[in-house]
């Protein structure tokens, strides 16, 4: 929402994750408060990949971390299956977290530099204390499935390339048999050639393990490749959300259109609308938060927060003036 409301939540399906009115605020110096995420709602159904896009600082990572309660959100609800995570006791939360695994942007620094990679993959399981038949065979199998030769199990992370480290962190996440995999810019630090390897790997693993995914990236082409649904965020709110084909083929929110136009080689005429700086999240604009940069803004945009409205079968956006001429990617 560069807007608010929950019209876009799917009532007819049974979501594995449902986030309602999520707010995350951080107090900073001089009594200011960074409104990192303001009233965000979304849902993800079993087996689906939701891509989250937006400019740096728009609250993508904060939203993802709030889902796993690291840290707990300022307000709002996060439901995982039938559990309300925000009110779960520490112990129950710990148990639930193994169902929700995260992988991060910087593959090298997210791995313990002093341990062999086999131990790294095993360690998550030890920490969670998952009981049962956890065999070395399973670790070997996991390493094979992410494309790391099991005979390198004793090597330390620095002996691997960035792409290989990302494979190792994926294996570590999968070791816990999660249902949901949350990836925060998992390929942003990788070379294009290796990026494609990881994207294919994630896609394969998703099928194989029947994962549900939250996939964060600032690269729209990457998100397009991997997502079933897409959520576009701007300054702590959701602008547009829906079926990926519909969002990319038929973007109607001025912000989404501007984002698409900014892609190098997109072939879209540059109307310069996104020039200018992102406003401060500790003092966001009134009304529609995008109005300071929006070429279609009018009076009402500066005063009234737009609510979600339906634009297509699974296509929702929060804007007072949805654009009827979609931008087309060449």
């Amino acid at each position: 929402m560069v807007g608010i409301g929950s019209a876009h939540l799917r009532t007819d399906e049974d979501p594995i994750i449902e986030v309602n009115n999520l707010v995350m605020e951080f107090p900073v110096a001089n009594r200011a408060v960074v409104q990192a995420v303001s009233d965000v709602s979304f849902d993800v159904v079993q087996g689906e990949t939701l891509g989250i896009v937006g400019e740096s600082g728009c609250g993508k990572s904060t939203t993802a971390k709030a889902v796993v309660q690291m840290p707990k959100p300022t307000s709002g609800s996060v439901r995982y299956r039938d559990k309300e995570l925000t009110t779960l006791s520490k112990q129950d939360l710990r148990r639930t977290r193994s169902d929700l695994q995260m992988i991060f942007q910087d593959p090298v620094s997210s791995l313990n530099p002093r341990r062999g990679i086999r131990d790294i993959i095993r360690e998550g399981v030890e920490v969670w204390g998952t009981s049962g038949t956890w065999g070395e065979a399973r670790i070997t199998e996991l390493m094979e499935s992410v494309g790391i030769d099991p005979q390198y199990g004793d090597r330390k992370p620095f002996q691997f390339s960035g792409g290989q480290c990302q494979r190792i962190s994926i294996a570590r996440a999968l070791a816990l048999d999660p249902y949901v995999l949350i990836s925060d810019e998992p390929v942003s630090a990788l070379d294009v050639s290796v990026q494609a390897q990881i994207l294919n790997l994630l896609e394969d693993l998703k099928q194989e393990h029947q994962l549900t995914m939250l996939f964060i990236s600032h690269d729209l082409a990457v998100v397009r490749n991997i997502s079933d649904r897409v959520m576009v965020m701007y300054l702590g709110r959701v602008a547009e959300v829906g079926d990926a084909d519909s969002i990319f083929g038929n973007a109607a929110h001025p912000y989404t259109q501007a984002l698409l136009a900014a892609i190098p080689g997109s072939g879209i005429e540059d109307d310069g609308s996104l020039s200018g700086e992102l406003p401060s999240p500790s003092n966001p604009p009134t009304g529609c938060r995008f109005h300071t940069r929006c070429p279609h803004a009018t009076e009402v945009c500066t005063t009234t927060v737009p609510e979600f409205g339906q634009h297509g079968p699974d296509h929702w956006l929060a804007c007072h003036h949805p654009q009827s001429t979609p931008v087309t990617l060449s």
Binding site: V192, S193, V194, A196, L199, N200, A221, N225, F248, I263
Partner: peptide
């Protein structure tokens, strides 16, 4: 190897 934004979801990438 670069994902093509004009192609719909699920296109198999050709990694190096």
């Amino acid at each position: 190897s670069i994902p093509d934004i004009s192609k719909p979801r699920g296109q198999r990438l050709d990694p190096i």
